[in-house]
């Protein structure tokens, strides 16, 4: 049964930054939700229209892409046997996707961008981080549903440099501590965390490249539309160390729920309200909430 991944810890009543990654109990990389078909169509359309926004891979990344592809395909076949079947061959495998009614061949070195190919069967964005000289570099990834960032810009960049725009992320060397944690990630011991924001509208493919198209919706929220129009946006992020290439597979599954739906649970509405009250201004601005925050607060006060 699908349930929206509410991002706050029990009892949390104010906003703070910390390494909120926790050891994963069920050790999964991906999840199939009731939105699968809709999201796969959007993902594929987005890739066709703007491939350069959605996929990057430096030359040295092939082995890791292939390892990640196998890792994900095996999990799909194992966890969703009614939906996916996988038939292995000497230099590859065939994936049958019964939801999409597709049979797809994956052949080592024949598929030039295996990560991009397997990504067309899962709702997650898939990022590969490569470890060199004590740093982690984003050298390959498929990204269709980003929260206002550009994969093309971040290509080849290190973890610390990627996070430079996040306000407060360097305070108390949080960035270094998180990087150290990631460098010590071990195969077979995955972690997960969630990231949250609010957004005006229900667009999943909010690339930085198209900010002028979707960003203006922030200014069109009104007292009457706020409940249905503003959504809580949660990214469930999973971190797996791949055993052969020692790359980190970072998967991001983005979930949206309207304020109105969320407010059916008054405890959750209350928790969101108190956390929003304590949100530091720079973070509120970074998350893009400022233009319509007062409407959200009034709405939640009305509900509570």
């Amino acid at each position: 049964m699908y349930s929206f991944p509410f991002p706050f810890e029990e009892g949390q009543s104010h906003y703070f930054y910390k390494n909120n990654a926790v050891q994963m109990k069920n050790r999964t990389t991906v999840q199939i939700t009731p939105n699968y078909l809709k999201e796969m169509k959007l993902k594929r359309d987005t890739i066709i229209k703007n491939p350069e926004r959605c996929f990057v891979a430096l030359d040295h990344t092939y082995e890791a892409q292939w390892e990640a592809t196998l890792y994900i395909a095996k999990e799909l076949a194992l966890r969703y046997p009614d939906t996916f079947t996988m038939t292995s061959r000497k230099y590859g495998f065939t994936l049958n996707n019964h939801l999409l009614k597709e049979e797809v061949r994956f052949d080592y070195k024949v598929n030039k961008e295996p990560l991009n190919d397997i990504g067309k069967h899962v709702q997650e964005d898939l990022i590969l981080m490569f470890q060199r000289e004590g740093q982690l570099f984003l050298d390959a990834g498929q990204l269709c549903f980003p929260s206002n960032w550009s994969l093309a810009f971040n290509k080849g960049m290190a973890f610390m440099d990627i996070h430079r725009p996040v306000p407060g992320f360097q305070e108390g060397q949080l960035d270094r501590r998180i990087e150290r944690f990631l460098l010590h990630l071990c195969p077979g011991d995955p972690f997960e965390r969630s990231n949250w924001s609010l957004m005006a509208g229900e667009t999943l493919n909010t690339h930085l490249e198209t900010f002028p198209e979707w960003g203006k919706k922030r200014y069109s929220v009104t007292e009457d539309t706020v409940g249905n129009y503003v959504h809580v946006r949660v990214e469930v992020q999973k971190l797996h160390r791949l055993p052969k290439t020692y790359t980190i597979l970072f998967t991001i599954h983005t979930h949206l729920l309207s304020l109105k739906e969320l407010s059916k649970d008054l405890n959750k509405a209350n928790q969101l309200y108190t956390i929003l009250l304590s949100l530091p201004k720079p973070i509120e601005e970074y998350k893009g909430i400022t233009p319509y925050k007062s409407h959200v607060m009034n709405y939640l006060e009305g509900v509570l």
Binding site: F153, N154, K155, G156, M157, A158, D161, R164, P165
Partner: peptide, 9 residues
């Protein structure tokens, strides 16, 4: 122009 610098580009 932001101060976000790419060491790759």
């Amino acid at each position: 122009v932001t101060n976000h610098w790419s060491t790759f580009h």
